[in-house]
């Protein structure tokens, strides 16, 4: 029985398998409408994340399955002090697969060590969120036609942004990947990721503070939010925040086929004025997230169309 904690738990071949399944679902959803008949997904959300939970629930319904669960710790037995281990054992009696969100890092692993059914990490604190990365990968694949030989720019908070760390770790395993890191000095990619991922896989990377200057060379630009609370003083924040807001003026620096991605929710780092730009792909990412969750549920349950 398999579970999924981190994107690197999946091999490149397995990721390709999920992408292939997702593409088949997109082409012919009817063929998949009953593959999970009578199966139940338990969404165990110990902290609220409406977007991720709805994506998992929609995914299971579209496979013909059913959903049980809770959407916050206060509405669960955790409020009475039940351990993650006991919750996992209990839910194993009712459901066929678990999607778990928890504020503490490693909680889904604890669940999987005690459950008799597969567990999907739907976000554990600031640690891992592999299904977001699966959505990112399907988006890149569908929009660019490949996952190798891409120059990907990451912009914003590269220090704390787990979606950035995880996508870099996933892409590092493909041939011909180049990475451009665009951030204020205060929010640069941590050195352990440069060492353990970029240098380990010989990925050429450059660091810059200048978004416009970096844009012409990019195949994809992955935006994240620069949060006020990450700065030591208000002055620095105010000085920097506008440099990393993507607007139609800055988009003039991008190539015609550079796609814009964002894990959402956004605040103001992407101007709504570019939502209708054909290069804006962040809402496609949301949709792709559902398809990849469908493919993942099928893989972990061992069902085929």
């Amino acid at each position: 029985m398999r579970s999924l904690f981190s994107i690197t738990d999946l091999s490149v071949e397995e990721i390709q398998g999920l992408i292939d399944t997702a593409n088949q679902i997109i082409e012919d959803p009817d063929r998949f409408a009953h593959v999970c008949d009578r199966k139940k997904l338990a969404t165990l959300f110990f902290e609220p994340s409406t977007r991720t939970r709805l994506s998992f629930e929609a995914a299971m319904y579209e496979l013909g399955g059913q959903v049980i669960g809770f959407s916050s710790a206060s509405s669960s037995s955790a409020a009475k002090g039940e351990s993650v281990a006991d919750t996992a054992k209990t839910i194993s009696c009712y459901a066929d697969i678990i999607a778990m969100r928890h504020p503490k890092e490693g909680a889904p692993l604890v669940a999987a060590m005690n459950a008799s059914i597969p567990v999907i990490n739907a976000g554990d604190g600031g640690h891992n969120h592999p299904t977001q990365t699966l959505a990112d990968l399907l988006t890149l694949y569908r929009e660019k036609g490949r996952l190798d030989n891409l120059t990907v720019g990451f912009c914003g908070d590269l220090k704390f942004g787990r979606t950035v760390h995880s996508l870099i770790a996933a892409l590092a395993r493909y041939e011909g990947i180049k990475v451009v890191l665009i951030s204020p000095k205060e929010l640069q990619l941590p050195s352990y990721i440069k060492k353990d991922v970029l240098q380990k896989y010989d990925i050429p990377y450059t660091q810059t503070t200048n978004l416009e200057g970096a844009m012409p060379q990019l195949d994809a630009l992955y935006m994240t939010r620069v949060q006020r609370e990450r700065f030591f003083n208000e002055e620095d924040y105010l000085r920097l925040k506008d440099s990393y807001i993507l607007d139609p003026e800055k988009m003039k620096n991008a190539g015609e086929d550079m796609i814009v991605m964002h894990p959402l929710p956004r605040v103001n780092e992407i101007s709504v004025a570019i939502d209708n730009d054909p290069r804006a792909c962040y809402f496609k990412q949301v949709l792709n997230g559902k398809y990849m969750r469908m493919a993942l549920i099928m893989m972990l349950l061992g069902v085929k169309a």
Binding site: S83, V84, A85, H102, P103, K104, E105, G106, A107, V110
Partner: peptide, 9 residues
């Protein structure tokens, strides 16, 4: 932030 910080056992 680790799960071991809240789950004593």
């Amino acid at each position: 932030r680790c799960i071991t910080s809240t789950e004593q056992e």
